[in-house]
Write a protein that binds this DNA or RNA. Sequence first.
RNA 1: GUGGGCGUAGCUCAGUCGGUUAGAGCGCUGCUCUGUGGAAGCGGAGGUCGCGGGUUCAAGUCCCGUCUCCCACCCCA
Length: 425
Amino acid sequence: MKFQTIKGTFDRLPEDSAKWRLVQDKAREVLERFGAGEIHTPVFEDVGVFSKAVGDSSDIVRKEMYTFTDRGGRNLCLRPEATAGMVRAYLEHGFASKPTPVKFWTFEPMFRGEKPQRGRERQFHQVGFEILGLPDALADAEIIDAGVQLLSSLGVKDYEIHLGSVGDPEDRAAYNQYLRDTLSPVLEKLSKDSQERLVLNPMRILDSKEKIDQALLLELKVKPMLEFLGAEAREHFEAVQECLKAWGIPFVIDSSIVRGLDYYRRTAFEFIHNSPEMAGCSTILAGGRYDGLAEILGGQHTPGVGWGCGAERVILAMEAEKITAPPLEKPLVYVIPLDAESMLYAQNVARAVRGIGQALCAYKVKGMGKALADAEKFGSRFAVIVGSNERETGVLSVRNVVTREQESVPFEDLVSWLSKSMISS
RNA sequence: GUGGGCGUAGCUCAGUCGGUUAGAGCGCUGCUCUGUGGAAGCGGAGGUCGCGGGUUCAAGUCCCGUCUCCCACCCCA
């Protein structure tokens, strides 16, 4: 084979479509009930939209973005995440003058040059939901509720909501300073990765997988971020929890939640799936608050909260929980021409049926047995047999593929006959 | 980006100690078979044994490199 999909990408085949369609349909249904409008931003944008929003120090910008220059010399990139583009669109189209809040939902591919693994592709797909214009904790809670509703509508149950807060920028700065002050004296005792983290992003040391790091954190009794929240951030964090409790949404406080994207403020959360098959890709939905992002993009201050939900991962989670999607529509009829002379007539039958449903017609004349077997292989409900008798009389032989009952139906009555049988079954 | 595992037909897999023309089942397809069911029988198509080099009289098999996918990291949805 000369060509194949490039690393980290995959073909989504017809046999995969039922699950994908379910995810997309439920996202639309659930999120539009929250009042979200469907939005689609371009897959490529000015690289600045993401490098500014996500942060130059983030791994996504530093080593995972697909950037390129077009023929006009423009510096572009394939979008690595959804939020920045949606905020850019919000600003560009003057959504600030629309009633507040503005809610967007989307379902789009994202691109990151990561090393592929299960549940981790270079082109992956996210459902996104954003609420723009509301600084209130109520919006944070609502957006988490929307995530819960989406997963519940898909039948996904075996997960936990981890809730944390990264505070306001000054809280985070103070905490990072605290970490540097506390850990610098013992720099040599940290793992090599964490020594780098201490310079670049000290908070990442907290969720290091290295035992020596964790032991050291314990030994030094390093305080969690949550103890550094300012009064307002703390109040906000507690208000979010109050809402969730009031709505009976279970969650666990997780002070180790660290965002890879710099624009997050205050609330940060992750929905983490429990099944062992999801090890390594257990975060199926994640998000938080990003007040300040609009200003970074050159707009006026616009608070916002949102999340992204990885479609590939949710589908893996559904498979782990043995959830199946409803099958896609099967052919209503399979038309069988019995001789070469009936071919056109048979096609006419199929064309008529397509007014109300899916119709297939055989392209070759085969033995009756083979043809009926084909009707079943294609999954059709009825086989319509067209031979010389049928052509001469205009009365078709319609056979139920499952029950094998057969009756004669005049061509002109076929569509209404089929409609009736669809209702009665 | 680092470390490890895998790779033979569309799918699931066999292939001995390195030995002649690389096999099976399923699937696809043709015929037996021009008016009623998935059968059966007999055929056919489909492979650069992931790719490239090396060792050897001889490589699917041994060695090296490389790519993919998978696993653990990094990181993330």
